[in-house]
Amino acid sequence: MNRKERQEARANRLRELSVNAAKQSTEAYNQSYKMVEHIPPGQPILVGHHSERGHRSLLNRSWNALGKSVKLGEKAEYFERKAEAAENNNSIYLGDDDAVDRLQEKVDALEKAQGMMKAANKIVRSKKLNDIAKVEQLQTLGFSENKAIELTKPDRYGEYGFPSYMLSNNNARIRDAKLRRDRARKLKETEDKEYTISGVRVVENAKENRLQLFFAGIPSKEIRSQLKENNTFRWTPSIGCWQAYLNRWCIERAKVILNSITE
């Protein structure tokens, strides 16, 4: 299953949870209504009457059912927002099948932006061009007319064009993207490793950038607690294993936990 398929599967699971919660919310609302539909609107509780106790109990149950309906409705909205976020998640993960290509595209886009900013600064800071000529040349670089005019005006510090911090920040993003691209490429070229510790199958899945632990059964509560500490490992039902990012720290942490298992 590639990244896109996992993303779609997660969105579908969340949307199913949303639909179920919405259905339960409607059922709770209908239950609340049916409990009191036979009571005339505005009918007061007859204090001292034999019906008082039943009337109060019915109103309480109806109110609780209504409260349950509201909470389930909020739960449905929560899962729907999570599903939309999953569908629109365009983050690049090192284990993605297309990570190298997408990171290279990011590097190319950032380097193009860097080149445009440098070229724009050279134009707007030229002493040989008037503002009209500057705007025309900026447009040939790909800037809109409004943006070109904006660049020819000084900022609050009296500087023209793109400030140095924008160039520095973009350079930092370029370096980071290149490092991640090279890391992703290395992962794709690395062979997976598989071994066993205390009866647990350990897979260093380089292609997915995941460290995977396959237990023969359900690990003890203590082991599960250690795995979940600091959100290091997470249970992945679709694969049937505990997963973490593949790095030296997680590998060493897994060895410590697994070696602590006693028969």
Results as ranks from 00 to 15, higher is better:
14 L>D: 07
158 G>H: 13
160 Y>D: 01
61 R>S: 06
11 A>P: 06
65 A>P: 11
244 A>C: 11
149 I>Y: 10
113 A>K: 15
52 E>R: 01
130 N>I: 13
251 I>Y: 12
175 R>A: 13
37 E>N: 14
191 E>Q: 11
3 R>I: 05
115 G>W: 07
180 R>C: 00
124 V>N: 03
262 T>H: 09
43 Q>E: 15
30 N>V: 06
109 A>K: 14
53 R>L: 12
190 T>F: 04
163 P>V: 03
200 V>W: 05
245 Y>V: 11
219 P>T: 02
134 K>A: 08
197 I>K: 01
74 E>P: 01
215 F>Q: 00
96 D>L: 07
58 L>F: 04
108 D>Q: 01
124 V>Q: 03
202 V>A: 03
215 F>C: 02
27 E>A: 02
3 R>Q: 07
50 H>W: 13
139 Q>N: 00
228 K>N: 03
244 A>M: 05
209 N>D: 09
258 L>C: 09
37 E>D: 10
116 M>V: 03
74 E>H: 08
190 T>M: 13
238 S>H: 09
165 Y>V: 06
9 A>I: 12
230 N>W: 07
28 A>R: 05
119 A>T: 06
102 R>Y: 09
137 Q>L: 15
183 R>Q: 15
229 E>A: 14
146 N>K: 13
61 R>D: 08
76 A>Q: 01
2 N>Q: 08
146 N>P: 03
179 L>Q: 05
233 F>C: 10
220 S>G: 10
199 G>R: 14
155 D>W: 00
25 S>L: 00
89 N>E: 12
167 L>V: 09
21 A>C: 12
8 E>Y: 10
182 D>P: 04
53 R>E: 14
233 F>L: 03
60 N>Q: 11
245 Y>E: 12
64 N>Y: 15
37 E>Q: 12
237 P>F: 10
40 P>C: 01
2 N>T: 09
12 N>L: 08
252 E>T: 08
25 S>I: 00
228 K>P: 05
68 K>Q: 12
60 N>T: 15
243 Q>C: 11
105 E>M: 14
176 D>L: 03
241 C>G: 02
238 S>Q: 07
66 L>Q: 12
250 C>D: 02
177 A>C: 04
224 R>F: 06
